[in-house]
Amino acid sequence: MIEGKVHDVRFHRYDGPRNGRLAALWSMIRWSTLRALGAKRGWKAKVIPIALTLVAFFPALIVLGLRALFASSISDNLATVLPYSDYAGIVGLVILVFAVVVTPELLCPDRRDGTLALYFATAISRTDYVLGKVLAALLPLLLVTVLPPAILYAGNVLFATHPLGYVQEHTHDIPRIAAAGIAMALYFAFVGLAISSLTGRRAFAVGGYLAFLIVPTIVGGILSNNIEHGENLRLMAFAAVPIHTAEALYPVAPDSGDPSNTAWVLVWLGLIAVSALVLVWRFRGDEA
């Protein structure tokens, strides 16, 4: 050869500005959330989350739409047609499907494509990763759990004859809407992530998650009617746990007892705790 030149392509230190660990974490959370909702993916990946989100808003939009169309006389009655305490129960199935479709997308591809090791080679530690993914799972869920009743609230304020009076009368509903939404989001996020952490295949995480929610619900339903003191087996309705927990936050809803609201909340708490333990176990130090 004529003449040679060896280019220095060895590892270089990065000398530019550094944004630090929090920026790295935030970047991961942001992109995890957006990707789970279908960003930078084909239209098919976007359709289901977007459609489900819209459906979650339907009840609020229908009630508000009717109020907008009809005279204020009927309108006042309409204000009570859809109490905030019932919202979770009405769109519960939609939230469930949304959670089942969206949550596994946060963990499974990382494990399957080997991105996990790359993450841990950056400033993001295992703990950061898990906490970040929990946040990333919560954000889209809050979109369907908190926002629809919040919109309904805002609409009710607007259509009220005395908007300020409505707010004064219903101040306590604001924290309840938020708390109920967060309670549901926490449940679906933790349980979904725990199940997703067990497999790299998204499809099986989705199937497993749905099966986990639905099968015990059916089993508990049938058994509770047929065995001695079976009432408490209704608590196996894992699909209904977040709805009951959300409703427990509204004193308006009478405690149906058998099982009591407290029992539902305990199941809610227990499943979240177990899920958190599963996550800790799956992402413990020694292996990715």
Partner: peptide, 13 residues
Amino acid sequence: MALVYAVAAKAGA
């Protein structure tokens, strides 16, 4: 489920 039932069926179930 059947096992639980066999063990603890309600009287008259």
